[in-house]
Amino acid sequence: MEDAQTLAQAIVNTIPEPFLVLDDEFRVLAASVSFYKIFKVDPDHTQGRLLYSLGDGQWDIPTLRVLLETIIPEQAAMDGFEVEHDFPNLGHRVMLLNARQVIYEGELKSTILLAFMDITSRRAIEREKEELLRRTEELLQQKEILLKEMQHRVANSLQIIASILLLKARAVLSEETRQHLKDAHQRVMSVAEVQRHLHSSEGVDQIEVSSYLRNLCDSLAISMVGEGQPIAIKVMAHSGVIGSDKAVSIGLIVTELVINAIKYAFPSAKAGAMILVTYEIDAGDWKLTVSDNGVGKCASDGTGHNSGLGTAIVQALVKQLDAAMDTVSGRDGMKISITRATFTSNMPRAA
């Protein structure tokens, strides 16, 4: 029996964390060296004493009473029971308790094994992380609000500019000036369409290209196609997202090429007149094509039906996108392709 008690005490002392052995009345039968050291209590004032009376009652903790007097008798074991308390010699501490009730065969009495783990530092770090996360989320929310406000103001500004250009176009007497103002109006509207997609999309700088091109071309059709010469504008685009800066460039290119096709491809009424806009994606490569089934190109300017500001804009944007432009024109219409790297197309053309 003495050897067994010596072995048991040696095992208890070997445990690096504070450890207690209690009887069924919660009196201390044994305590580990780490318990005495950490909680600064004397063995002579610990052995055989009620746990709740140790250290001038510092262990008389309501949550600890719930564990020992309510949970353990019902469940016989409990892991990860958290106790938070202000200890006189230690200050505020958060302890994680593991408890086991040992019932001996043929005896009415039992023993309770109680292990303590100080997780004060861990909880402090977790709280710091939670606070940092909370502050980060607040900053992100503020950033999102400011970004939406900025997008809203930019969109409003673009709409105002577009409206002014349209009003000016209606007021001027020169047909050439009127046409330039209308073209400028469409360029502003193409940028406004990017802003609208940014405002409605989840990403900060990503735009779904298929819906973007469809909405842009629908806007062009409504404002540019007259009743005297109905022209269908069709969009066929692969699904995918592109950056907002790239979307602005592609949108401006489409705007210029579609406006050119509307103005020059169909000088006279034609049944089934159509402009086809396609956008294809192959991994990191892409191809944008604007084709029509009109009369083709009259002047050899290499970019469209007529040279001018629109041509210069398209050329600059193609260069900015690090792409190449190819124009094919004939009796069955014109096809202008903007290609990033090498790309094999499988889209149909306007017919």
Score class of each variant (00 low, 15 high):
C217V: 02
D326H: 05
T344R: 11
L216R: 01
L51M: 04
L50R: 12
V188G: 03
K246L: 15
V248K: 02
S200H: 11
L96E: 08
V66W: 10
R127I: 08
D205G: 02
T46G: 06
A312P: 01
I336H: 09
N89L: 14
V248N: 05
F343N: 01
L216Q: 01
L257C: 07
I336F: 11
T120Y: 07
I15S: 03
L67C: 09
K168P: 03
P62S: 12
I242H: 08
D60C: 10
G294N: 00
L90G: 08
H199C: 09
H199T: 12
L166M: 12
P16R: 03
M117K: 14
I161Y: 01
Q5Y: 14
K109G: 12
T344I: 12
L113R: 00
I61E: 06
D301M: 08
G272R: 05
G302N: 07
K263R: 13
A316E: 11
A192D: 07
I207A: 04
V235H: 06
Q101L: 14
A261I: 01
L22V: 07
F39Y: 10
D118L: 05
A247T: 02
S121Q: 14
I338N: 04
L146V: 07
A8M: 13
Q9D: 14
A184R: 00
L317C: 05
E176Y: 13
L96Q: 09
E208W: 00
F26G: 02
A115E: 09
E193T: 07
L68V: 06
I161M: 11
L147Y: 09
E130K: 02
Q159H: 13
L276Q: 06
W59F: 15
F35E: 04
L309D: 05
R187H: 12
M78S: 14
M236P: 04
T46C: 09
V209Y: 05
L146E: 10
T111W: 07
D285I: 00
L133R: 06
I275A: 04
I233E: 03
L22T: 01
A273K: 03
S300F: 05
M78D: 05
I119K: 10
D332A: 14
A324L: 07
R187K: 08
I38M: 15
I233F: 08
L165C: 07
D60L: 06
L114N: 02
F26V: 06
L252W: 03
R122N: 10
S190Q: 00
F81Y: 14
R65V: 12
K246M: 15
L114S: 01
L257Y: 08
L20C: 08
L158I: 02
M150V: 07
Q151P: 00
M236E: 13
I11D: 10
G304N: 04
Q9E: 12
E137N: 11
A31P: 09
T63G: 15
L321M: 10
H305A: 10
V314T: 03
L140Y: 10
V204L: 13
